[in-house]
Amino acid sequence: MTPAIVATHVSKRIGPRLILRDIDLTVERGRFLTILGPNGAGKTTLLRILTGLLKPSSGRVLIDGRDLAEVPAEVRRQFGVISHHSYLYDALTARENLYFYGRLYDVPDLAARIDEVLAEVGLELFFNEPVRTFSRGMVQRLAIARAIIHRPSLLFLDEPYTGLDPQASETLSSVLNSLRGPDRAIVMITHQFDQGLAMADRVVVVVRGQIALDEAAADLTLDELNRRYRAAAGGTGDGAGAEEATR
């Protein structure tokens, strides 16, 4: 089967800085991959390149065997992205937001699908309220509904836990777990080692624009991950990463 993502020799230079150096990464369907790394290591840049928001300086990204640079609009159809930003319009109601994005993705039988996803994230009673009246946790749940309304086969999670209280984090984890499936690949970048490891099948650590660690999650305990992360990040003389790891 064609892997969901194949990135080969991806490098990104911004000004004089080499943000990513020669990254090779393959993600199979049905897998949950967590990408960890200190601030400025390049994980956000990597995610932006994988989603096509940013173009690599060299190298290429294949999604389901199709080149992201050649058929961007077609490939993007399979993406669902959940970020710590909600991508929602505050002045529109929950339903209007979902309707707007659903139409953008040409979702068939949209009205029924909207009810379905609203129920999935537990917001069915609030469909007619403007998003600006929502709490942070509700916004995040609606953002999830927005991201999955078109049944994406590839989910990208960009620091989804940022700004959530413990209860909202728990809800997020359970929703994310329910999204796993044999046909769906999930890629998450996060600071949260515990959640990151708990959900992942595989963990990749990016340090200084390079992949420093790539392990099956089953082979790692949290302590082990912390230790090896420190070794990888600390080995380059960057203390910030180790602090972050214990946070």
């Binding site: 230079r13 000004g15 173009k55």
Partner: peptide
């Protein structure tokens, strides 16, 4: 489409 070539020395 902007294409950035790998420039080893931008200058």
């Amino acid at each position: 489409m902007p294409q950035q070539k790998p420039a080893t020395r931008p200058s």
